[in-house]
Protein backbone atom coordinates (compact mmCIF):
# COMPACT_ATOMS: atom_id res chain seq x y z
CA UNK A 1 0.00 0.00 0.00
CA UNK A 2 2.91 2.34 0.83
CA UNK A 3 4.52 1.54 -2.50
CA UNK A 4 1.23 2.24 -4.21
CA UNK A 5 0.88 5.63 -2.52
CA UNK A 6 4.50 6.48 -3.31
CA UNK A 7 3.99 5.47 -6.93
CA UNK A 8 0.85 7.60 -7.23
CA UNK A 9 2.62 10.63 -5.73
CA UNK A 10 5.60 10.05 -7.98
CA UNK A 11 3.37 9.75 -11.04
CA UNK A 12 1.83 13.16 -10.31
CA UNK A 13 5.35 14.55 -9.88
CA UNK A 14 6.48 13.04 -13.19
CA UNK A 15 3.50 14.55 -15.01
CA UNK A 16 3.98 17.98 -13.45
CA UNK A 17 7.74 18.11 -13.92
CA UNK A 18 7.80 17.25 -17.61
CA UNK A 19 4.72 18.88 -19.16
CA UNK A 20 6.36 18.85 -22.61
CA UNK A 21 6.89 15.08 -22.71
CA UNK A 22 3.49 14.52 -21.06
CA UNK A 23 1.74 16.72 -23.61
CA UNK A 24 3.48 15.05 -26.55
CA UNK A 25 2.68 11.58 -25.28
CA UNK A 26 -0.94 12.57 -24.68
CA UNK A 27 -1.17 13.90 -28.25
CA UNK A 28 0.48 10.76 -29.65
CA UNK A 29 -2.00 8.52 -27.84
CA UNK A 30 -4.87 10.72 -29.01
CA UNK A 31 -3.78 10.58 -32.67
CA UNK A 32 -2.97 6.85 -32.56
CA UNK A 33 -6.29 5.90 -31.02
CA UNK A 34 -8.18 8.30 -33.27
CA UNK A 35 -6.86 6.29 -36.22
CA UNK A 36 -7.53 2.97 -34.48
CA UNK A 37 -11.11 4.12 -33.81
CA UNK A 38 -11.49 5.41 -37.39
CA UNK A 39 -10.27 2.05 -38.71
CA UNK A 40 -12.78 0.34 -36.44
CA UNK A 41 -15.62 2.52 -37.71
CA UNK A 42 -14.54 2.03 -41.33
CA UNK A 43 -14.50 -1.74 -40.81
CA UNK A 44 -17.90 -1.69 -39.10
CA UNK A 45 -19.46 0.48 -41.81
CA UNK A 46 -18.05 -1.67 -44.62
CA UNK A 47 -19.58 -4.73 -42.95
CA UNK A 48 -22.83 -2.85 -42.37
CA UNK A 49 -23.21 -1.72 -46.00
CA UNK A 50 -22.48 -5.22 -47.28
CA UNK A 51 -24.89 -6.82 -44.83
CA UNK A 52 -27.63 -4.37 -45.93
CA UNK A 53 -27.10 -5.46 -49.54
CA UNK A 54 -26.92 -9.11 -48.47
CA UNK A 55 -30.23 -8.68 -46.66
CA UNK A 56 -31.82 -7.75 -49.99
CA UNK A 57 -30.85 -11.08 -51.55
CA UNK A 58 -33.93 -13.29 -52.04
CA UNK A 59 -34.33 -16.93 -53.07
CA UNK A 60 -37.63 -17.68 -54.71
CA UNK A 61 -38.76 -21.31 -54.38
CA UNK A 62 -41.76 -22.27 -56.59
CA UNK A 63 -43.95 -25.14 -55.40
CA UNK A 64 -45.34 -28.13 -57.30
CA UNK A 65 -49.03 -27.59 -58.19
CA UNK A 66 -50.10 -29.79 -55.28
CA UNK A 67 -47.44 -28.59 -52.89
CA UNK A 68 -48.40 -27.56 -49.35
CA UNK A 69 -47.35 -23.94 -48.91
CA UNK A 70 -47.39 -23.98 -45.09
CA UNK A 71 -45.32 -27.17 -44.91
CA UNK A 72 -42.68 -25.77 -47.26
CA UNK A 73 -42.63 -22.50 -45.31
CA UNK A 74 -41.93 -24.38 -42.05
CA UNK A 75 -39.22 -26.54 -43.62
CA UNK A 76 -37.57 -23.51 -45.22
CA UNK A 77 -37.59 -21.62 -41.92
CA UNK A 78 -35.65 -24.50 -40.30
CA UNK A 79 -32.80 -24.36 -42.81
CA UNK A 80 -29.66 -22.88 -41.23
CA UNK A 81 -28.80 -19.27 -42.21
CA UNK A 82 -32.40 -18.52 -43.18
CA UNK A 83 -33.51 -15.26 -41.59
CA UNK A 84 -36.98 -14.92 -43.03
CA UNK A 85 -39.57 -16.81 -45.08
CA UNK A 86 -42.52 -15.18 -46.80
CA UNK A 87 -45.17 -17.54 -48.23
CA UNK A 88 -46.91 -16.35 -51.40
CA UNK A 89 -50.00 -18.30 -52.49
CA UNK A 90 -50.90 -18.51 -56.18
CA UNK A 91 -53.74 -15.99 -55.54
CA UNK A 92 -51.33 -13.55 -53.91
CA UNK A 93 -48.92 -14.04 -56.82
CA UNK A 94 -51.68 -13.13 -59.25
CA UNK A 95 -52.56 -10.02 -57.23
CA UNK A 96 -48.91 -9.02 -57.20
CA UNK A 97 -48.71 -9.50 -60.97
CA UNK A 98 -51.79 -7.36 -61.46
CA UNK A 99 -50.33 -4.67 -59.27
CA UNK A 100 -47.12 -4.76 -61.25
CA UNK A 101 -48.94 -4.53 -64.60
CA UNK A 102 -50.92 -1.51 -63.41
CA UNK A 103 -53.19 -0.22 -66.25
CA UNK A 104 -52.70 -3.41 -68.22
CA UNK A 105 -53.81 -5.67 -65.37
CA UNK A 106 -56.96 -6.58 -67.35
CA UNK A 107 -54.72 -8.67 -69.58
CA UNK A 108 -54.45 -11.17 -66.74
CA UNK A 109 -58.08 -12.19 -67.32
CA UNK A 110 -57.01 -13.57 -70.70
CA UNK A 111 -55.06 -16.27 -68.86
CA UNK A 112 -58.26 -17.90 -67.68
CA UNK A 113 -57.36 -20.16 -64.78
CA UNK A 114 -54.59 -18.79 -62.51
CA UNK A 115 -51.38 -20.34 -63.88
CA UNK A 116 -49.05 -18.87 -61.26
CA UNK A 117 -47.61 -21.34 -58.71
CA UNK A 118 -47.42 -20.72 -55.00
CA UNK A 119 -43.94 -19.86 -53.79
CA UNK A 120 -41.86 -18.94 -50.74
CA UNK A 121 -39.56 -15.96 -50.64
CA UNK A 122 -36.51 -16.85 -48.51
CA UNK A 123 -34.00 -14.38 -47.07
CA UNK A 124 -30.62 -15.47 -45.73
CA UNK A 125 -28.11 -13.97 -43.33
CA UNK A 126 -25.25 -13.58 -45.80
CA UNK A 127 -24.49 -13.93 -49.49
CA UNK A 128 -22.27 -16.98 -49.02
CA UNK A 129 -25.27 -18.92 -47.63
CA UNK A 130 -27.43 -18.39 -50.70
CA UNK A 131 -26.18 -21.34 -52.77
CA UNK A 132 -26.44 -23.79 -49.86
CA UNK A 133 -29.97 -22.72 -48.93
CA UNK A 134 -31.04 -22.88 -52.59
CA UNK A 135 -29.72 -26.48 -52.77
CA UNK A 136 -31.70 -27.39 -49.64
CA UNK A 137 -34.84 -25.87 -51.13
CA UNK A 138 -34.52 -27.56 -54.52
CA UNK A 139 -34.05 -30.93 -52.82
CA UNK A 140 -37.52 -30.65 -51.24
CA UNK A 141 -40.00 -32.86 -53.18
CA UNK A 142 -42.74 -30.21 -53.02
CA UNK A 143 -40.51 -27.58 -54.62
CA UNK A 144 -40.51 -27.49 -58.39
CA UNK A 145 -37.95 -24.79 -59.09
CA UNK A 146 -35.67 -22.32 -57.31
CA UNK A 147 -34.68 -18.92 -58.67
CA UNK A 148 -31.98 -16.70 -57.19
CA UNK A 149 -29.36 -14.23 -58.36
CA UNK A 150 -26.48 -16.71 -58.29
CA UNK A 151 -23.80 -14.51 -59.85
CA UNK A 152 -24.67 -11.52 -57.71
CA UNK A 153 -24.70 -13.68 -54.60
CA UNK A 154 -21.31 -15.12 -55.51
CA UNK A 155 -19.78 -11.69 -56.11
CA UNK A 156 -21.32 -10.37 -52.94
CA UNK A 157 -19.99 -13.36 -50.98
CA UNK A 158 -16.49 -12.68 -52.33
CA UNK A 159 -16.79 -8.99 -51.46
CA UNK A 160 -18.01 -9.89 -47.99
CA UNK A 161 -15.06 -12.23 -47.39
CA UNK A 162 -12.66 -9.56 -48.63
CA UNK A 163 -14.28 -6.95 -46.36
CA UNK A 164 -13.90 -9.31 -43.40
CA UNK A 165 -10.20 -9.92 -44.08
CA UNK A 166 -9.65 -6.24 -44.85
CA UNK A 167 -11.33 -5.18 -41.57
CA UNK A 168 -9.23 -7.62 -39.57
CA UNK A 169 -6.05 -6.54 -41.33
CA UNK A 170 -6.89 -2.86 -40.88
CA UNK A 171 -7.60 -3.33 -37.18
CA UNK A 172 -4.51 -5.47 -36.62
CA UNK A 173 -2.36 -2.93 -38.48
CA UNK A 174 -3.83 0.04 -36.61
CA UNK A 175 -3.46 -1.78 -33.28
CA UNK A 176 0.12 -2.83 -33.99
CA UNK A 177 1.14 0.60 -35.26
CA UNK A 178 -0.52 2.17 -32.22
CA UNK A 179 1.29 -0.20 -29.86
CA UNK A 180 4.66 0.51 -31.49
CA UNK A 181 4.20 4.29 -31.40
CA UNK A 182 3.00 4.14 -27.80
CA UNK A 183 5.85 1.84 -26.74
CA UNK A 184 8.48 4.09 -28.26
CA UNK A 185 6.92 7.28 -26.91
CA UNK A 186 6.88 5.80 -23.40
CA UNK A 187 10.48 4.60 -23.88
CA UNK A 188 11.56 8.13 -24.76
CA UNK A 189 9.76 9.46 -21.69
CA UNK A 190 11.45 6.82 -19.53
CA UNK A 191 14.81 7.56 -21.11
CA UNK A 192 14.54 11.14 -19.92
CA UNK A 193 14.31 9.67 -16.38
CA UNK A 194 17.24 7.30 -16.88
CA UNK A 195 19.39 8.76 -14.12
CA UNK A 196 16.56 8.64 -11.62
CA UNK A 197 15.90 4.96 -12.34
CA UNK A 198 19.59 4.12 -12.03
CA UNK A 199 19.92 5.92 -8.70
CA UNK A 200 16.80 4.23 -7.34
CA UNK A 201 18.19 0.83 -8.30
CA UNK A 202 21.61 1.65 -6.86
CA UNK A 203 20.11 2.37 -3.45
CA UNK A 204 18.22 -0.92 -3.36
CA UNK A 205 14.73 -0.11 -4.65
CA UNK A 206 12.87 -3.17 -5.93
CA UNK A 207 12.41 -3.22 -9.73
CA UNK A 208 8.63 -3.28 -9.27
CA UNK A 209 8.81 -0.23 -7.03
CA UNK A 210 10.88 1.63 -9.61
CA UNK A 211 8.61 0.58 -12.46
CA UNK A 212 5.25 1.37 -10.84
CA UNK A 213 5.23 5.19 -11.28
CA UNK A 214 6.18 4.79 -14.95
CA UNK A 215 3.47 2.18 -15.46
CA UNK A 216 0.93 4.50 -13.80
CA UNK A 217 2.21 7.29 -16.01
CA UNK A 218 1.67 5.14 -19.12
CA UNK A 219 -1.83 4.19 -17.96
CA UNK A 220 -2.62 7.86 -17.27
CA UNK A 221 -1.53 8.80 -20.79
CA UNK A 222 -3.44 5.84 -22.23
CA UNK A 223 -6.61 6.76 -20.35
CA UNK A 224 -6.62 10.50 -21.03
CA UNK A 225 -5.47 10.07 -24.65
CA UNK A 226 -8.14 7.50 -25.49
CA UNK A 227 -10.93 9.44 -23.74
CA UNK A 228 -9.98 12.49 -25.80
CA UNK A 229 -9.67 10.36 -28.97
CA UNK A 230 -13.14 8.87 -28.36
CA UNK A 231 -14.67 12.32 -27.91
CA UNK A 232 -13.01 13.78 -31.02
CA UNK A 233 -13.91 10.68 -33.05
CA UNK A 234 -17.53 10.75 -31.83
CA UNK A 235 -17.97 14.43 -32.70
CA UNK A 236 -16.32 14.17 -36.13
CA UNK A 237 -18.11 10.93 -37.05
CA UNK A 238 -21.50 12.36 -36.06
CA UNK A 239 -21.02 15.39 -38.31
CA UNK A 240 -19.76 13.09 -41.10
CA UNK A 241 -22.90 10.92 -40.83
CA UNK A 242 -25.13 14.01 -40.98
CA UNK A 243 -23.38 15.33 -44.08
CA UNK A 244 -23.56 11.90 -45.79
CA UNK A 245 -27.29 11.65 -44.97
CA UNK A 246 -27.84 15.07 -46.53
CA UNK A 247 -25.82 14.50 -49.70
CA UNK A 248 -25.94 10.71 -50.31
CA UNK A 249 -29.12 9.49 -48.56
CA UNK A 250 -28.95 6.00 -50.18
CA UNK A 251 -25.77 5.21 -48.20
CA UNK A 252 -26.73 3.98 -44.78
CA UNK A 253 -23.93 4.57 -42.28
CA UNK A 254 -24.07 3.26 -38.74
CA UNK A 255 -25.50 5.91 -36.44
CA UNK A 256 -26.33 4.44 -33.09
CA UNK A 257 -25.61 6.08 -29.69
CA UNK A 258 -25.11 2.61 -28.24
CA UNK A 259 -22.40 1.99 -30.84
CA UNK A 260 -20.54 5.15 -29.81
CA UNK A 261 -20.67 4.13 -26.16
CA UNK A 262 -19.38 0.64 -26.95
CA UNK A 263 -16.68 2.02 -29.24
CA UNK A 264 -15.62 4.49 -26.53
CA UNK A 265 -15.42 1.71 -23.94
CA UNK A 266 -13.43 -0.51 -26.32
CA UNK A 267 -11.03 2.34 -27.18
CA UNK A 268 -10.47 3.43 -23.56
CA UNK A 269 -10.16 -0.17 -22.37
CA UNK A 270 -7.71 -1.14 -25.07
CA UNK A 271 -5.84 2.16 -24.58
CA UNK A 272 -5.36 1.46 -20.88
CA UNK A 273 -4.38 -2.17 -21.48
CA UNK A 274 -2.01 -1.30 -24.30
CA UNK A 275 -0.35 1.60 -22.48
CA UNK A 276 0.01 -0.54 -19.36
CA UNK A 277 1.70 -3.29 -21.38
CA UNK A 278 3.88 -0.87 -23.35
CA UNK A 279 5.04 1.09 -20.32
CA UNK A 280 5.67 -2.10 -18.37
CA UNK A 281 7.78 -3.57 -21.18
CA UNK A 282 9.61 -0.28 -21.74
CA UNK A 283 10.49 0.31 -18.09
CA UNK A 284 11.25 -3.36 -17.45
CA UNK A 285 13.69 -3.38 -20.34
CA UNK A 286 15.36 -0.25 -19.01
CA UNK A 287 15.57 -1.70 -15.50
CA UNK A 288 17.07 -4.93 -16.84
CA UNK A 289 19.73 -2.89 -18.67
CA UNK A 290 20.42 -0.70 -15.64
CA UNK A 291 20.73 -3.69 -13.31
CA UNK A 292 23.02 -5.65 -15.56
CA UNK A 293 26.55 -5.32 -14.12
CA UNK A 294 29.20 -4.56 -16.70
Amino acid sequence: MRSFRFALRDTVRLIRQSPGVSGLTFLTVLVVFFFVGSSFLLALNTRHVISVVEGELVIQAYLQPKGNLDEVRKKAANIPHVTGVRPISSEQALELLKARLGNQSAAVTLLGENPLPASVEVRVDKASSVAGVARELVSMPQVEDVVYAGKVAEKLARLSRFAEVFSLFLLAFAGLAGALVLYNTIRVAIYSRKQEIEVMLLVGALPGFVALPFVFLGVFWGFTGTVAASLVLGILYKSFVVSVQNTLPFIQLLDNPDLFLKLGIVLVGSGIALSWLCSWFAVERHIAEAMKPS
Binding site: F6, M200, V203, A205, L206, V210
Partner: peptide
Protein backbone atom coordinates in the same frame (compact mmCIF):
# COMPACT_ATOMS: atom_id res chain seq x y z
CA UNK B 1 12.97 8.57 -1.26
CA UNK B 2 15.68 5.99 -0.50
CA UNK B 3 13.83 5.10 2.68
CA UNK B 4 10.48 4.98 0.92
CA UNK B 5 12.05 2.81 -1.75
CA UNK B 6 12.87 0.22 0.89
CA UNK B 7 9.43 0.29 2.48
CA UNK B 8 9.31 3.13 5.03
Amino acid sequence: FVLEAVGA
